[in-house]
Structures are given as C-alpha cells and as structure tokens.
C-alpha cells in the first residue's frame, strides 16, 4: 500500500508529494522504516529500496511485521538532480524537526518525523555526494552509540564511525528521531548520482539480517561481516593544498602507510604535478575523491587508523 505522508501545493498546478509504501504481514507490529532520498543527488538508496521491497514482495509469507519504505524524502531534488530542496537551495537535512505551522520545508519535515516516529528501527540511507566515494558505513554520534551500536553491527557494513556530537547536526532527521526514541541508523555508501550494485547488495543483506534479528523475517538470510568500529581509532583527513586535477594512484579500500604516495594533483595547462598527495597516517582508505577537479581544501581521502598499538583484523 502506498500513501502520501506529506503534501504541499506548488505554484503551477502540481503538488509536492512525499510517499511511502507499507508492506505488512503477520501478527507482529514490529516496524522497520527504510528512508532515503533526503539529498536529491544521492541515489544508492533508490536501488536498495527497490531491492528490499521487491524481495519482500516475492517472499511475503516470510514477513512478520511492518516494513515502511520512504524512497524519496526530497522528490523534487531527485527529479532535478538537486542536492537540496529546489528553489530554496536548502539542505533538507538541516531543517529537522521542522514545524507543522512553519514554512513548506519545515511543514514537510515535521510530517516526515511524525510518520517515522514509533518505528522500532529506522535506516536512513545516504550516498555521500558527487565528490566522494564511501565504503558502506554507518555513522553515529558518541551520545547515541550505546543504543545504536548493537543494531549497526547487524547491518553488514564495513565500518561504523562514531563521531563527536556537533550542535549543527541537531537539525538532522537522524538526531531528531533518535532524540524521540526511534533508533535511527545513518548509512553512507557509494557515491552521488550513481548506483553501486555491489554496495546495495551488501546493505540489502544487512537489512534482511536486521529484520531477522528483530523477529520480522522468517526466511533464510545471508551471514553478515563484522564491521570495523572507529572507537579507539583516529580518522586522518587528506585535503588538497593545491588546485588542479586529482588523479589517485591508491585504491579505495587500500591499507596504506603514513607518507605513501596516494595520488597527484596535476595542472592540465602547465602539465606539472602541483602536489604529490601522501597518506597523513597509516590505515584504511575508506573515503576517496571521485570528482577530479579540486581547490585548496578539497577532501581527497579519509584514512581510518589502526587501534593504537594494535593491528587491523
């Protein structure tokens, strides 16, 4: 069953509709919400939403609970390849919790929060942006880690990044839902404007595993990998200092040593290498720049350091 959970009239004979699909079977009321499409340039979640819905449809008798799929929180953004809400250039994930009596964006956000609240678990799928590629990972703030980590480790991601809380992130959907008691996991994977089938498949297995653990799925499921958790580790940021074209020579997922050559910034006009990019620390490259044009400051890579004094598995 599909339903419109929020709607706003646009200027010329059209409504902006945010839709969800509810798949329900069995006696249990356990509810999993799969949410994506907050940023219009992030598409990995679109294919994942299709995969999960399609698989459940084909094996509907195995479901014992409620799965709500929200594929497009920012439908106009996806439709127009716009990261924010078109017309306003607003990042939707800085408008939560919104307000029923607020502006259009605030009203939509408040309706979304109301609808998802009460889910047993919510999975909020993002896919970086057009500039960076990310290995499948779940991010959470330190204050929420104790609650969320037991669920995150079931999700078949490679990495769980527990970061410091930041006031500005209090305007996100995940913060709002977690504050209201709906356990919400933020997934980052792949790259903007593309679908990485391999990652969608990986996360699909995680979603099904989580459903099994929640008692919502009676069918067979694949085993999941044990993620690296960032606790006790530092993340090294590699930013460009020069402007030009970034050409990596390390691969995504490589383990590198501090000082290793991981790429060059080159100048196509002068044919010179303007910066030899080196790893800032030992560790695993879990973020790598995908879009070649860089300014000073452009993020090129993130490296997850090993545990102090220890070795990665």
């Amino acid at each position: 069953m599909t339903e419109t959970i929020a709607s706003a009239a646009l200027a010329v004979h059209e409504n902006l509709n945010i839709q969800k699909r509810r798949i329900q079977k069995g006696e249990k009321k356990t509810r999993l919400s799969l949410v994506t499409g907050t940023h219009g340039d992030e598409l990995e979640g679109q294919y994942l939403a299709y995969m999960v819905g399609s698989f459940i449809d084909q094996n509907i008798d195995m479901l014992d609970g409620i799965v709500d799929i929200y594929p497009a929180l920012n439908p106009m953004g996806i439709d127009s390849i716009t990261r924010g809400i078109p017309m306003f250039d607003l990042d939707m994930n800085r408008v939560f919790p919104g307000s029923k009596n607020g502006t259009m964006a605030e009203m939509l956000c408040a309706s979304i929060v109301d609808d998802i609240s009460g889910s047993d678990v919510c999975i909020d799928v993002h896919s970086s942006n057009i500039f960076l590629k990310e290995i499948p990972q779940i991010r959470m703030s330190a204050p929420t880690a104790q609650t969320l980590l037991p669920y995150a480790i079931l999700m078949n991601v490679d990495f769980i990044w527990i970061h410091d809380a930041a006031t500005v992130l209090e305007s996100t959907l995940a913060h709002t839902l977690n504050t209201r008691g709906t356990k919400t996991l933020v997934v980052e994977m792949g790259v903007g404007m593309r679908i990485t089938k391999e990652y969608c498949r990986q996360l699909f297995d995680g979603v099904m595993y989580l459903m099994k653990e929640l008692g919502m799925w009676k069918g067979e499921i694949a085993s999941v990998r044990e993620p690296i958790v960032s606790e006790g580790r530092e993340v090294g940021f590699v930013n460009s200092d020069a402007a030009g074209i970034f050409v990596p020579c390390a691969n995504f997922g490589d383990t590198v040593k501090k000082g290793d050559h991981i790429g060059d910034v080159v100048d196509p006009l002068t044919s010179e290498v303007v910066e030899k990019v080196k790893a800032v620390c030992d560790g695993l490259i879990f973020t790598l720049r995908e879009y070649p044009v860089v300014y000073g400051g452009s993020l090129l890579a993130r490296i997850l350091q090993p545990v102090s004094g220890g070795e990665d598995k």
Partner: peptide, 26 residues
C-alpha cells in the same frame, strides 16, 4: 550562483572555519 561555485556549500555555514578543512571552511 548563490553558494560556493564547486560544491554548493554556504560560506556562512562554515564559521569559525578550519584552516586544514574543506575549501569553504578554509
């Protein structure tokens, strides 16, 4: 364009800034 040319970030959402950060943070 209203926001930063390349990544569409808003300089007035980057303060106090970060010298080793991304372009608009710098």
């Amino acid at each position: 364009k209203r926001f930063w040319t390349m990544d569409n970030t808003d300089i007035n959402r980057m303060f106090p800034g970060y010298v080793q950060g991304e372009t608009t943070q710098r």
